[in-house]
Design a protein around this nucleic acid. Structure first.
Lengths: 178, 178
DNA sequence: ACGTGCATGTAAAGCGTTACATGATTAC
DNA sequence: GTAATCATGTAACGCTTTACATGCACGT
């Protein structure tokens, strides 16, 4: 499947990056939909070099700090485009531990169950607020074909997802108290 | 983390089950939020027995077919309850390959991008319709504390999740054509 | 001088999928 | 009889997390 491979190719395609840069990207917006730690990223970068999909230039920052700045080779861009254009089926399961817990909620005491739901609600509301603040930074929908268009799409997606989660939690809390 | 462990304990707590039963559950409603294959389930059952959390009785079906019917031991129920009552932080990333693709959508041709979005939309709409049909089977919200209450909560959750996905895809298709 | 962030790696363990392997039961 | 479903397992591989490990740069 190698999803990480394509995530990395996609990021490097946006702009030449170091492993550290890529690690940071996964902590930002993109991190809402895919994440990887540096311990996974560095070996994957090495592998992509071996496969001839990317290459790097060593750059010295300051006096001695070595950075490896990776960029796409033709073959890498090719494979990225191929993956991007694939029409894959939806995956049937988006794992969610909290919802799994709620499936067994009949074993939790009413009061505590409400507490658990409230706790999630607070976190989700906060997340939603952060995302909304970010989208307010756009004065208009970015132009189709720009990198910002992709940013915008997934930001909107994250907002709708969180809003739905919040809505569910609110409803569930009500249902507990009836 | 051992989430599968608790999923299995939860299922066995609902009713004594075989590995095959548990495999089926993961393909049903619950499968919207957690899934595991039999190759993961059988070893985990063995492990839970070793740990003294569950036990089994061998039952002969028909002439010779051996079934292992697992049930919870006290320690298993204890650990399940402990897990259920834990207030865990939300996980920051629900991985989604399609949204990852859309993050890099500036590299996809407009027409084809719309096709990809439409393809996802069709699948999500179908899923949503199936889920809605299921919730229509409930004449009313099940009573708090019943097993059905948990079923209902996660069903509603799945519906809201899919509805949000559909909403996002519809918006995105519009945004592509503007 | 000290702390935070920049920068790169490896090792071990755990989690999950795909494939291999086998055999009984039931409904048509 | 034969196909679908019931039923249980193992092996190999791949993906992901946690922990170990090191050192430079920059601002205060």
């Amino acid at each position: 499947m190698r999803t990480l491979k394509y995530a990395i190719l996609g990021l490097i395609n946006r702009r030449p990056s170091t492993g550290y840069d890529i690690t940071k990207e996964f902590k930002a917006e993109l991190g809402n939909f895919w994440r990887a730690r540096h311990s996974q990223i560095y070996p994957e970068l090495k592998r992509l070099v071996d496969e001839g999909l990317i290459e790097y230039e060593t750059v010295i920052a300051g006096e001695a700090l070595e950075k490896k700045v990776y960029s796409l080779k033709d073959k890498g861009r090719e494979e990225l485009l191929e993956w991007l254009n694939k029409d894959e089926k939806m995956v049937p399961t988006a794992k969610d531990k909290f919802r799994l817990r709620m499936y067994f909620s009949s074993n939790i005491e009413q009061e505590h169950l409400v507490e658990l739901l409230e706790s999630q609600l607070e976190q989700r509301r906060e997340k939603l607020a952060t995302l909304k603040k970010k989208i307010d930074g756009y004065s208009e929908v970015p132009q189709f074909g720009s990198q910002e268009f992709g940013d915008y799409l997934v930001l909107e997606s994250a907002i709708l997802r969180e809003a739905a989660y919040v809505e569910w939690l609110e409803r569930s809390i009500k249902r507990c108290s009836q």
